[in-house]
């Protein structure tokens, strides 16, 4: 049982925030994590920036480019996170693309995650079959969840296969889009959420991509364990000169506080 599993057992209407490590400034990582924890976010996804993030829209692309220009790397990120568990108790998930992780070494990467206290990893371009064959036992022996994505186009048999293999949560991509697409929740998305609900899957589900405000957050919480917000948060901190204060106000607004 890692922190993610405990969280899903005990709480509903979860809010997770994605941000890109190294953005807006190289050393903001711990500041942002602290601000998110203090604002009552349930867990955090730390983006490992990549030069060619092909599932991401313009906002996360630009933050990744800026982070890399600032000098962010996987080595540096792990250095920054070395002591994170002295102050941060929320579950932590690392999200990024496979190539930098391969270059770092998958085994070494998992080892580092385990030392630091990372609970889950999202690598959208890691093929399920390859994970299953080569990496699954490595993840499981360290108690680190590999998070799978599902989309409106994922057929039922594949949904069930991913559900079966999932140890953390299923990342439910809200619509056919890259991150940051502005949408509002449409009827066809609700149909998709209901269709997935009716499958009685074992794994908890978080909805991500295109969630940006209180209304979309509340709406998707009816059909899933919670939601993930990325681009909207990044747009906000890009302009922030008071990360703790602005984060608190942002999260409060999403949660529907005054």
């Amino acid at each position: 049982m890692n922190r993610l599993n405990k969280l899903f057992e005990t709480r509903k209407n979860l809010l997770s925030i994605y941000f890109t490590a190294g953005f807006p400034n190289l050393n903001d990582t711990l500041v942002i994590l602290q601000a998110l924890q203090d604002s009552g976010v349930d867990f955090m996804e730390i983006g490992m920036p990549f030069s060619d993030p092909l599932a991401d829209g313009p906002v996360i692309q630009a933050s990744s480019t800026a982070a890399l220009n600032n000098g962010m790397s996987l080595n540096l990120l792990f250095e920054q996170l070395q002591t994170v568990r002295q102050t941060i108790s929320m579950p932590l998930v690392l999200m990024g693309y496979l190539n930098p992780v391969l270059k770092f070494g998958v085994e070494k990467f998992i080892q580092k995650c385990s030392e630091i206290g990372v609970d889950g990893v999202i690598l959208p371009d890691l093929p399920f079959e390859l994970f299953n064959r080569e990496y699954r036992s490595m993840f499981e022996s360290k108690g680190i969840s590999n998070i799978f994505l599902i989309t409106p186009q994922t057929p039922e048999c594949r949904l069930r296969m991913l559900d079966e293999a999932s140890t953390g949560f299923l990342y439910m991509v809200s619509s056919a889009a890259v991150t940051g697409a502005k949408s509002g929740i449409s009827q066809s998305q609700i149909d998709y959420f209901e269709r997935v609900n009716a499958l009685n899957l074992n794994s908890p589900r978080m909805v991500g991509f295109g969630i940006s405000d209180n209304e979309s957050f509340k709406q998707v919480c009816k059909y899933a364990n919670g939601a993930i917000i990325g681009s909207a948060f990044i747009r906000m901190i890009e302009k922030s000169s008071d990360i703790p204060g602005d984060t608190a106000r942002f999260i409060n607004a999403i949660r529907g506080g005054k």
Binding site: D125, P127, Q153, A176
Partner: peptide, 11 residues
Amino acid sequence: GAFIPEMLIPN
């Protein structure tokens, strides 16, 4: 191989 996100897998 095919190192692609889930969104592209059905296609």
